[in-house]
Design a protein around this nucleic acid. Structure first.
Length: 781
DNA sequence: GAATAAATTGTTTTT
DNA sequence: CAATTTATTC
């Protein structure tokens, strides 16, 4: 194969390397993927069985791209195992330990953690679940077990409690036969380091290990790589310390910087020629990144032309900022560009809204890769929870999620009783609900609980004989789920569309995947990110976070919100930790180097933040861009000649918006942006008939639990003027008693708590006057 | 007791 | 300003 002349000398040097450790420093746009794929092709050409090669990436998207490119060069490439860290580990764990475990995502994790904190009788204000989750995650990334953590923090009361929560959390995960994202790596490392037989098996299998984005590995992943490649030492890692942007997730830049120490005799190749960006863009990016201290010495250069100076636009507000973006895209497209040539990048997902609104009104096609991710939609999680509960009966979080979806009249109080029963009898949650009849105080409710348990059993049997999509369809039919999410609002329509999309995904999975089991489907679903669906062929502008944009390139990039407290974030500014700021700086470097031809930086004079209006200075990174690389532009994108671009003082406000001076086609687009569309609160009940139609054709298998009928309460045994006791508020005086439906509403004046209203049938009020007469309290229930 | 309406609170980035 | 916790209503 004559591919070597497609590589420059450094690239060739890396691609030709066969055995022993290899470190490739690959700057942005330096042809990293090309080198990796050619190297794999060459390994195969030199007689290495593709069966012995594994390539590990961070995202499915990167894995997919590499798989395709390898297969394009050599047909044998299809046999190479190309996978993400998490998918590879999941595969190993399923094969070696257990095939049925659940994978808990962030929200599952949080829910379980809340349970644990509650069970420990700790307050979640003093131990905020998010914060505790982060601490636990950090420990797992460092391969620190609960026991080790406990010893580490010995003597500290607070952290001691966190250690106990960590231990309980792990116990509960085990009982639920579930792993969180961090466990997937941790458990694989444990498996490989403790079990020599299995370790040798995989070391023998993976004689050639390639790792992409090595600068983003955390300690657990570092250990994993070390274990996998430990025998043959044919480890090739590719990375760029300047693009390490996942420090908050435990990524340790030191891993790549100390590679030569870890793997003595390692060959080091630096790819410093950039094929992507213009000189101007690269100069700016270099200027910004050079101010970081913790980095390997290198300098990216290019033979590309100098190009158009970076455009800086000062917007009035975020709407003007979004409007400017749409104008520039429209102008570009009018001059022959494709919508897909443009990307809008931002620091936080919340910034997407303003841009999105303007794109919608101007009719520019766009795709957004952020915000609520598909699998995090409530309705999608509900259906997936059914699948998870069926796939893994021990999965408590999945059961908790759906036990009252659709409404079965099982609320918090009933759940507490079930949990108490389970804990007392040493049963798992799913075992407990099958025996709900034995639970004290559940009363009539036990019937619907038992019915729910039986329904899941029925589904499990069904699942054994039928496909995932058929199972999903069955659940949707039986539970009337579509009817529960339709509420006549546009949101309801969206939920319905999401469910249909989920069904479509299941069908696609059955057609495409080799292993079509329910477990595999759930695994695929748990390990995908929105960005994985990025499709270069779609001709639409792309909106995404800077983080998501890593690895991508676009002709024109808009980096919006280039302001202090947004980018860099207030957190990085306030923390005062220079490491945080260095990571922001790397993120800026990543953002700049996504652009091939034109880079726009925009900032806004005023910006609505949560509940107030902020006036942010321009980003400090703007000060690091050389003057001759950048030009301030007006709302038409034309360079201002009279004044320098705004620095942190003397900001200029965009001169407002009009269509004057634009070609007719664009002038139409350039109408002053209207006020944000007003959402009609009394929207017609869209899709209702459609849904009814859908539901009517399908047999409903189970009858929904009967809606609890309010029982007629007997009049309270106290009257106006009496003193009564409430368990929460203490003693108070009865002000008023009036009939309300089947019950009576009583108003009580408490000395401390003030005036409160109760429903007599439910309130636990006891009369002080009629203590002795009180005897008919449990007449019902 | 569960469903719903009101109030509050807290916001980076993601496998 | 949205999603979650707390108060109110049935």
């Amino acid at each position: 194969m004559n591919y070597l002349d497609k590589l420059n000398p450094s690239q060739r040097e890396a691609a030709m390397h066969l055995n022993g450790p290899l470190l490739i420093f690959a700057g942005a746009g330096s042809g990293k993927t090309r080198v990796l794929t050619y190297r794999v092709a060459r390994l195969i050409e030199q007689g290495v069985d593709p069966y012995h090669i594994i390539a590990i990436t961070f995202t499915n998207k990167a894995a997919k791209e590499m798989r395709e490119r390898i297969s394009n060069i050599t047909p044998l490439g299809e046999q190479v195992w190309v996978s993400t860290f998490h998918a590879a580990c999941t595969r190993i764990l399923r094969r070696e330990i257990d095939s049925g475990f659940s994978i808990y995502d962030t929200s599952d994790t949080l829910r379980l953690l809340k349970e644990c904190i509650k069970e420990k009788n700790l307050s979640d204000t003093h131990y905020p679940p998010r914060h505790v989750a982060q601490i636990i995650s950090a420990q797992k990334n460092e391969l620190i077990t609960p026991g080790e953590y406990e010893r580490l923090v010995a003597g500290s009361f607070r952290e001691g409690n966190v250690a106990e929560i960590y231990a309980l959390y792990q116990k509960r995960l085990r009982e639920s036969n579930a792993l969180d994202f961090d466990d997937i790596i941790f458990r694989t490392v444990e498996l490989l380091s403790h079990n020599e037989e299995i370790r040798l098996k995989y070391q023998n299998r993976f004689r050639y290990v390639l790792v992409d984005e090595y600068q983003d590995t955390n300690h657990a992943q570092y250990e994993l790589v070390r274990l996998l490649s430990g025998y043959a030492q044919n480890l090739c890692v590719v990375g760029d310390d300047d693009q390490s942007i996942y420090g908050w997730r435990g990524a340790d830049i030191a891993n790549i910087l100390r590679f030569e120490k870890d793997y003595p005799g390692a060959k080091v190749v630096k790819l410093e020629q950039n094929y992507r960006s213009s000189k101007v863009i690269l100069d700016a990016a270099n200027a910004v990144i050079s101010l970081n201290e913790e980095r390997a010495d290198k300098l990216l250069w290019t033979e590309n032309e100098r190009g158009t100076p970076i455009r800086l636009y000062t917007a009035r507000d975020e709407r003007d900022e979004g409007y400017f973006v749409t104008q520039m895209i429209a102008k570009g497209v009018a001059n022959g560009a494709r919508f897909g040539d443009f990307a809008v990048l931002y620091r936080t997902n919340s910034q997407s809204r303003a841009v999105e609104d303007q794109l919608v009104t101007s009719g520019i096609p766009y795709r957004i890769f952020s915000g609520v991710r598909f699998y995090e939609h409530m309705e999608v999680k509900d259906i997936l929870a059914y699948l998870k509960a069926i796939n893994n009966p021990a999965d408590e979080i999945a059961h908790l999620r759906i036990i009252n979806v659709p409404r079965r009249g099982i609320g918090l109080a009933s759940l507490d009783k079930i949990k108490f029963f389970a804990a007392e009898s040493g049963l798992t949650f799913s075992q407990a609900i099958s025996r709900a009849a034995e639970i004290d105080g559940l009363g009539k409710k036990s019937a619907s609980v038992v019915q729910f348990a039986a329904y899941l059993d029925e589904c499990a049997e069904f699942a054994a004989e039928n496909s995932v999509s058929e199972l999903m369809q069955k659940i949707l039919n039986d539970t009337d789920y579509m009817l529960t999410i339709k509420d006549g609002t546009p949101e309801g329509e969206e939920r319905e569309a999401n469910i249909k999309e989920l069904l479509a995904k299941a069908t696609a999975f059955e057609n495409e995947s080799e292993d079509t089991s329910l477990a595999k489907f759930l695994e695929d679903v748990a390990l995908v990110a929105d960005i994985d669906n990025y499709n270069e062929d779609a001709d639409a502008a792309a909106l995404m976070t800077l983080h998501s944009a890593k690895g991508l390139e676009f002709d024109t990039v808009f980096l919006v919100g280039f302001e202090e407290y947004l980018f860099p974030t207030s957190r990085a500014i306030d923390s005062g930790n220079h490491k945080d700021m260095e990571e922001e700086r790397r993120l800026c470097y990543v953002g700049f180097t996504r652009a091939k031809k034109i880079l726009y930086l925009t900032h806004s004079i005023i910006r609505r933040r949560f509940d107030h209006i902020a006036r942010n200075k321009t980003s400090r990174f703007l000060d690091d861009v050389p003057e001759d690389c950048i030009a301030s532009v007006n709302m038409y994108g034309n360079e201002r000649t009279t004044r320098p671009f705004p620095r942190n003082a003397g900001l200029e406000v965009g001169e407002g918006i009009s269509g004057a001076g634009l070609p007719p086609a664009l002038a139409a687009l350039a109408k002053p942006s209207e006020k944000p569309p007003i959402i009609n609160a009394t929207a017609p009940p869209m899709g209702f008939s459609q849904l009814k139609q859908l539901a009517s054709g399908q047999k409903i298998a189970r009858t929904p639990a009967p809606r609890p009928v309010p029982t007629k309460a007997s009049p309270p045994d106290y009257s106006v003027g009496d003193k009564v006791r409430d368990p929460k508020y203490g003693v108070g005086e009865v002000i008023d008693i009036s009939p309300a439906g089947a019950d009576y509403e009583v108003t009580i004046q408490f000395p401390a708590a003030g005036r409160k209203k109760f429903m007599a049938g439910w309130a636990k009020l006891s009369s002080m006057e009629a203590q002795s007469k009180r005897k008919t309290e449990e007449s019902e229930e």
